[in-house]
Design a protein around this nucleic acid. Structure first.
Lengths: 125, 125
DNA sequence: TATAGTAACTTGCAATTTGCAAGTTACTAA
DNA sequence: TTAGTAACTTGCAAATTGCAAGTTACTATA
């Protein structure tokens, strides 16, 4: 639906409605974004670390999701070297506070998808 | 990616990986499915009740999501009259147990999307 | 008998997103 | 000069989303 028509119904200028769930899903409602958050929680930082996962995320999808998360203030992108510039991604406070959502999903998933197991955190110095 | 190649990497035959989050997102990782669950939690039962929401879900998307949720055992579809057959949808126990996920999303959403408010439950007899 | 209304969808198709796989950039190392 | 690396971008086919009209199986009304 056109943004202008939704705006008419929606004076506070949320994208689809004033429901918090709707607004969260506007950012996280796809199959990949919360998996990127998972991997950052587990300690991955660099693009090459994030691209390696059993789910085999496509590199244009990973790049797209990282950009959206950065724009939303969920993660930061920081250079760890200069020539050439290379970057690490970290969760912000806002991003860290997504963990209860992941935990609730894990709780439900472990119960209803027997045989699933939580992935280990990677060691970081 | 082809299902056969993923199956090779994935002996327990999960769609993408053995992570519980991944499996939950295989069903809920889109912008609409958790909103359908929200509306069922709020007491909506019939298709015409579910189709009316500020987010203006498309009727083919609603039908598609209800079918998927029924196939996954999250909701039931029961006739409330016979001629013509007309149906109500209810959450199963498995579906009710999604509420902690919605609650975690709401908690984060209320904090980070100021001005959002939780929708009221509808009165039911 | 004809017409209108209702609820629960289905359909055709355009627009958008996903995902494959190759390519690009800006460096360093050999 | 060539190869390697990390972080993406690109072109394009396949899949999904979403619009809006249509269908089905009934009942109500004139």
């Amino acid at each position: 639906m056109k943004k202008e028509q939704k705006a008419a119904d929606n004076p506070a200028a949320f994208e689809r409605s004033s429901c918090p769930i709707t607004n969260v899903l506007d950012l996280f409602g796809d199959k990949w974004t919360l998996l990127v958050i998972r991997d950052l929680v587990l300690g991955k930082r660099r693009y090459q670390e994030l691209i390696v996962s059993p789910e085999k995320i496509a590199s244009n999808i990973l790049a797209d999701r990282l950009k959206k998360l950065e724009d939303a203030g969920i993660i930061t992108r920081q250079a760890y070297q200069q020539k050439p510039a290379r970057y690490e991604y970290r969760l912000t406070q806002k991003g860290e506070e997504l963990q209860p959502i992941l935990e609730a999903i894990i709780t439900w998933g472990l119960k209803y998808y027997p045989g699933t197991t939580i992935f280990p955190r990677i060691e970081r110095y």
